[in-house]
Design a protein around this nucleic acid. Structure first.
Length: 883
DNA sequence: AGACTCACGTA
DNA sequence: CGTACGTGAGTCTA
């Protein structure tokens, strides 16, 4: 009988796989509305469904431990004694998993006094004896001993439980260079920390395998113990009893008395009703679909009565007014609004409470919607929106006043998962309601399903509020209420204002940069004797490393780097005119590209209206797109010419720029409470000079510019997790000197080092970092076994509270400034934010008052243990206004 | 057309 | 082998 014709018996270690699933899936993302965590169940079932689909077993059993105690703990009480407390979120998941399995008519087996592995072992022996192909799924390596020609072990990878590695005899041989039955002897020699089974000290996998090859078995190794030389030999002779004990304990029992016959494990059809019930309780919609599909159930009935959006009512005048007032008083979180937008203008409006919805076919100046307009403008009437900023802008462009945006589901979803993938309402509906938002398939010309109306979208938005609020901790809730919600309005306003630019100036720049680039390109071509595309890294590589035979640089995925730093290195070691020309050409084309993108972005009003993406970053910063106004050049002279094009509009007198000086270092001083750093900021002396004086042991006046540059690089690097290697490379000093600089630095500013270490440690414990104001950023990778991933996460975790707190601070300042300006009835206005800088248009005669507001509000945005210093400048354009 | 890589601008 | 972004060009893939 060939393997394909054999019946397949699938046996799973329930507890170990559920536990693996628990650690593989984020706890926070899997929770039903009763607050029961379900990540382990979800992961387990998903894995099980994959196995059912791919392996098509004819027989199935899932084994569970009854308790921590078994014949092994009686024999050796310390066995598994080091296992910690069960995580609270795991509790309750096993019984629910068993319930789900029962509903799927899958046999679960637990036997008093034995572990699940023993059941697996017994089943695999019984199975092979009866002519089955056996698949063992376990997260316990001891089950490797069960592998033979008929038994394959599926072992979960570190990433998760859905990715299973197949261990057949060949794979075991490949991985350990031994036969499967020999594995327990290796394990016995090496020991198993997680089971509290110490092995023979100094003996690791390598040594154990070597000995097994030499002597054949543990018994033989013991018989020849005297022949083993060196410290390892001594260690073995002293601790061989450990190995003997471990071997006794890790031998799986293959003749446990089972409560059932193999035949009874035959795969049965699921109990559809029971499955629907259990999956409904677990709120597993997608998994239910998969079960039903696997089961061949067509058009699966939904578990619960399908929740569909209430039919939208069409209300006018008094009826609309009555509805709004009724819902406002009865609805806990206010009324949800969804604006249908075309070309930036509203074309329809949906309103919804938890149970009802209303559709308004928006048309300008429709008198019968007056109650809606009144309600919209009422700041005391709370509104819920998804991605409110765009809708706010659209409504305002139609002449409506909007106040009282109280909750934005998009922003709330981002605060919960700031680096996450959730971009649309549909994403949130799927994640937090476990439902599919009816959407038209863009690939279908004739939509199969009716896409959701504005009223339905509003209804879904409203339903998201509770689950989101429930998941937001206290700090994040405060950040949402005090920072993120108020800033929505500010950003919408700032975007709508735009910033005036001088088109002619930009056009001239573009022409001149274009001419420069063409000239440089011709000269570069002359140097190498042919014309290539200078913008192609691939062709540059051909020229440098093949034609000119230069030494290769830093490796990239597709070859060798030709970035500016690499070219500069080459220029130093192998000078060639081509290199300099290429660098200059890159400069010119890059600048030209920026200029051209700005010109393209000029709107009909002669101004550039960027979009600030409130949910664009993991740290809490705002990003800017279409065009990005946060990366306009400033470091080079030509770059600053671009800034000259950003000018005051005709209606105003000048631009004002205000920026925080060294805000991140100040936050570091505050968070670390380092007395030296705090003093540095309180004296008001130049920071790098002050720090340099401390480190190099000289008077501040005697700090040379070279010393200052080193200290500056070090200080800035700190907040990014800079290494000695990185510092040495950046400063072009040797590694030894960089190390010395770092240790000198920490000698004087030890609290900074302690703080940075502590941030990472705490983040490992908590799973997230927190800013001064309570904004969280999760860091799952801090526990990754992958070193690169983990170290990247460590550096990001180090930086997150600092960068994030700075982001919080400037947002608070923006909110307060906007509010003060409005209250003072100034016509001066905020135009741009560039992370630590704000740009304003100042009206004639308002300089002093605006500057006072800006300085006050930026300065008092946070109460730190060091002052927040603000630098202010004026000018007719952005460059001139810088200081 | 869309995804990916590289390079490079800012804080 | 320093954090956080967005853009554009070239290149590869569907």
């Amino acid at each position: 009988m060939s393997d394909n014709e054999k019946p397949t018996l699938l046996v799973i270690d329930g507890h170990s796989l559920a536990f693996r699933a628990f650690y593989a899936l984020p706890v926070d993302s899997f929770q039903n509305s009763e607050g029961q965590h379900t990540n382990a169940i979800h992961g387990f079932i998903a894995m099980l469904l994959n196995l059912l689909k791919n392996e098509k077993p004819t027989h199935i059993a899932v084994a569970f431990d009854i308790s921590r105690y078994s014949f092994r703990t009686r024999e050796y009480p310390e066995y598994k004694g080091t296992r910690g407390e069960t995580p609270p979120e795991f509790i309750g998941q096993i019984p629910l998993l068993q319930e789900a399995l029962k509903a799927m008519n899958i046999t679960t087996i637990s036997i008093e006094d034995f572990e699940a592995d023993d059941i697996l072992a017994t089943l695999s022996v019984r199975g092979t004896d009866s002519g089955y192909r056996v698949l063992v799924v376990s997260g316990d390596r001891d089950t490797i001993q069960l592998v033979n020609d008929d038994v394959t072990l599926l072992y979960p990878s570190r990433q998760g439980v859905s990715d299973l590695t197949r261990y057949d005899p060949a794979k075991v041989k490949d991985r350990y260079d031994i036969e499967p039955h020999q594995y327990p002897e290796i394990a016995a020699l090496v020991g198993e920390t997680s089971d509290n089974l110490p092995g023979v000290p100094k003996v690791g996998e390598k040594t154990a395998i070597k000995w097994l090859h030499r002597f054949g078995s543990l018994d033989e190794i013991i018989a020849h113990a005297d022949e083993i030389t060196g410290k390892v030999g001594e260690s073995f002779r002293e601790h061989k009893d450990n190995a003997v004990r471990n071997r006794r304990l890790n031998r799986l029992v293959t003749d446990v008395e089972l409560p059932c016959e193999l035949d009874s494990l035959e795969k049965q059809p699921i109990d559809q009703g029971a499955v629907r019930e259990v999956f409904a309780k677990l709120e597993f919609r997608t998994l239910l679909d998969r079960v039903m599909k696997l089961e061949g159930v067509e058009n699966a009935e939904p578990a619960a009565p399908e929740i569909t959006a209430p039919e939208a009512q069409n209300l006018l005048d008094e009826e609309l007014a009555a509805w709004l007032s009724r819902q406002s008083t009865s609805s806990e979180h206010g009324i949800a609004v969804s604006v249908e937008i075309a070309d930036g203008r509203p074309t329809g409006i949906g309103l919804a409470s938890a149970t009802e919805s209303v559709a308004l076919a928006w048309q300008p100046e429709r008198a019968d919607y007056a109650p809606f307009e009144t309600w919209l403008a009422d700041a005391s009437a709370p509104k819920v929106m998804h991605s409110g900023k765009q809708q706010l802008k659209a409504l305002r462009s139609a002449g409506l006043t909007v106040n009282g945006l109280a909750f934005d589901t998009f922003v709330a979803g981002w605060l919960l998962r700031p680096g996450g993938q959730d971009k649309t309402l549909a994403d949130l509906v799927l994640r937090y309601l476990d439902e599919k938002l009816p959407e038209a398939d863009p690939n279908q010309l004739v939509p199969a399903i009716e896409p959701s109306s504005a009223a339905a979208l509003a209804w879904y938005t409203h339903r998201l509020v509770d689950p989101l609020l429930q998941r937001l901790d206290e700090g994040s809730t405060r950040v949402l209420r005090d920072i993120e919600m108020p800033i929505v309005d500010v950003l919408a306003t700032v975007e709508a204002r735009g910033v005036a630019v001088d088109r002619q100036h930009l056009d001239e720049l573009s022409d001149s940069l274009g001419a420069t680039a063409r000239d440089l390109a011709q000269r570069a071509f002359a140097e190498i004797g042919r014309e290539i595309n200078l913008g192609s890294p691939k062709q540059i590589q051909e020229v440098l490393f093949e034609q000119l035979e230069m030494p290769t640089t830093r490796a990239t995925k597709t070859g060798y780097s030709t970035d500016a730093a690499s070219l500069a290195d080459l220029q130093a070691s192998h000078p060639h005119p081509f290199l300099g020309l290429l660098l200059e050409h890159r400069d010119a084309t890059k600048l030209r590209q920026i200029v051209d993108s700005l010109v393209k972005a000029i709107a009909d009003d002669g101004r550039i209206h960027t979009s600030y993406v409130q949910t664009g970053t993991s740290t809490g910063r705002i990003s800017s797109t279409d065009p990005n106004l946060q990366n306009i050049p400033v470091r080079t002279q030509t770059g600053r010419h671009i800034r000259e094009a950003f000018r005051v509009g005709d209606s105003h007198d000048s631009l004002l720029t205000a920026d925080y000086s060294q805000i991140e270092m100040r936050i570091m001083a505050h968070l670390s409470e380092d007395p030296g750093l705090i003093e540095a900021f309180r004296t008001g002396e130049d920071l790098h000079r002050f720090v340099g004086a401390r480190i190099f042991g000289v008077e501040p006046a005697d700090v040379t510019s070279e010393m200052r540059a080193k200290v500056k690089a070090m200080s800035y690097g700190l907040a990014y997790g800079l290494s000695a290697f990185g510092l040495s490379r950046q400063l072009r000093i040797d590694n030894k000197e960089a190390k010395q600089l770092m240790s000198d630095y920490f000698e004087r500013f030890g609290a900074v080092r302690d703080y940075l270490r502590n941030v990472v440690e705490q983040a490992k414990v908590d799973g997230y970092t927190t800013t001064i104001f309570g904004r969280r950023r999760p860091f799952p990778d801090l526990k990754s076994p992958n070193r690169t991933l983990r170290q990247n996460a460590e550096r990001a975790a180090l930086n997150a509270p600092i960068q994030g707190s700075a982001a919080d601070i400037i947002k608070i300042a923006m909110i307060n400034i906007e509010s003060d300006i409005r209250e003072a009835e100034l016509t001066s206005r905020m135009l741009m934010q560039v992370h630590d800088e704000l740009v304003f248009e100042v009206s004639d005669g308002e300089h002093d008052e605006l500057e006072r507001i800006v300085r006050t509000r930026m300065g008092d945005a946070a109460n730190l243990s060091v002052p927040l210093d603000v630098q202010v400048g004026y000018g007719p354009n952005w460059d001139a206004a810088a200081h």
